[in-house]
Write a protein that binds this DNA or RNA. Sequence first.
DNA 1: TCAGCTATTCGGTGTTGCTATGTACCAGTA
DNA 2: TACTGGTACATAGCAACACCGAATAGCTGA
Lengths: 109, 109
Amino acid sequence: MGKLVTEMLKGTLEGIVLAILAGRPAYGYEITAWLRDQGFSDIAEGTIYALLVRIEQRGLVDVEKVPSEKGPPRKVYSLNAQGQAYLEEFWRTWSFLAERLEQLREGGK
Amino acid sequence: MGKLVTEMLKGTLEGIVLAILAGRPAYGYEITAWLRDQGFSDIAEGTIYALLVRIEQRGLVDVEKVPSEKGPPRKVYSLNAQGQAYLEEFWRTWSFLAERLEQLREGGK
DNA sequence: TCAGCTATTCGGTGTTGCTATGTACCAGTA
DNA sequence: TACTGGTACATAGCAACACCGAATAGCTGA
């Protein structure tokens, strides 16, 4: 979409991915494809992989290598308890921000 | 609040400031104080000033130097037509992101 | 004089997403 | 066999942005 989205994704993309993993385990390629489907047209693959590495190193997800019929093995990520807690914190922060912005938008009319 | 908010503010803080300026002209110190009032407890002053310089250089705001009774002169910023257009674009992008996130939050329950 | 509030500026840092590229596995096809 | 294309992951270099810390400067009251 553009620079605006890119900057806004900083900080939120991580939450988005965690939220996806909260629904079901998934692997990088799949997540990227799904996000593109959702309209995040220009999310780079590298971005998701780097992000997954980060949240893995922080201990928010568990990883399992699963062979694929169609290519190299998949790294399937699933949210663990720590990730769940972090995701809740993310939603609280998001709510805070969204409320303030909604107020600003109303006030600006 | 913490690192989470800091990262989320990337990209949105700019829109927040523009939205404030859409309501009325304002200067840096004032904006910072107002944001702190609103609960953005740890927004650094330097951050706002740097942001104001940026949006000025991009031609989104007009600037006027106004003497203060209590200190050095204030740089009062006001949103111009270009800034108004940019703000609308910001709201569109924000809506897009907020909708996706809201869907994710619902789906995760 | 000096502390404290108002007001702005700036250099350096860390995090993050993007770009571009490379690696690797597999199926279909000419 | 060689080539194309889809699947799947990794990484080095870059730019943008918010933070931190310190500096500068004007004014007021103790």
